[in-house]
Design a binder for these strands. Sequence first.
DNA 1: GTTTATCCAGATATATATATATGGATATTC
DNA 2: GAATATCCATATATATATATCTGGATAAAC
Lengths: 154, 154
Amino acid sequence: MLVSRTSQYAVQALIYMATQPSTVPVLNKDIASRLGVPAPYLAKILQSLAKGNLLFSFRGRLGGFCLREGGDKITLMQILLLTEGPTFTQTCLLGLKKCSDETACPLHFRWAPVKKKIIDLLEETTLEKLAKAVETGKYRLADVPGNLFDQIKA
Amino acid sequence: MLVSRTSQYAVQALIYMATQPSTVPVLNKDIASRLGVPAPYLAKILQSLAKGNLLFSFRGRLGGFCLREGGDKITLMQILLLTEGPTFTQTCLLGLKKCSDETACPLHFRWAPVKKKIIDLLEETTLEKLAKAVETGKYRLADVPGNLFDQIKA
DNA sequence: GTTTATCCAGATATATATATATGGATATTC
DNA sequence: GAATATCCATATATATATATCTGGATAAAC
């Protein structure tokens, strides 16, 4: 597994939010049903994203979550740094605690250029780009097409 | 985390084995102490590698584990297919069950070339190359330098 | 054949990630 | 201020990965 399920849910949810009009907060339960993801669990993830200053959260009636900045300002890297932890780009393939250019594992210099590709991709991919891709209709955000009620509403 | 701890232990152990003379079986407990890894857990991993036809195992006195083929024949990909499961190269970054060129997640075509780099690296990196790298002394296989007893013996 | 050293199989324990449940705080509407 | 709808915090449950334990099978050495 490349990233945790938590990270996957976070990215999916944020892409979905970026496809929605930013004038009104998005409800946790709407995101959850659209993505086919457990709502209480997603709520916890969204709350941590709010603590990480990626989202605004509003309580009470008409409450919900909003992107704190435009989708063009938020990259995959920012999200994964929150959900995977601040050192996730530094981890060694073989699991060594110290693995740098000075004290390296035998894979270090083979892995470095590939890792750079990954980091570049994460840093240059914004929510806006991904949201646009979804809006074309060619790309799927979730496995199951939302439940029947949602389809009727839409 | 990119790969599981199990995979990391497996790769480390096999690299170590490739640095050892192939005339005599290597003991699980020697590998474990050299790598600073829990021996009973490593034993289970080695047993599964033996079942996966990557290792020979011999019981009884003078028993132990041997690489089934030369280190030049064994790639990282072969190892990870056993420890991560046969579908680990096919998993979607966003966790979708169906994510192919036909039905793709919004990241699919951005991720594809990076994934190819990863797969290429895993397929072209052999145990022999990694073992040679370790034998130069410039690269570390484990965090902790083996215990004192081992250092004296060596 | 007894002793010793190893792998082997299965059960168990622990840690972590994932998921759920519950009661409460907050804000809007009327 | 009562009713409603939402987020929030904490505790709990479940699943999975990681790690350990125990008894046994096998084979070499003496």
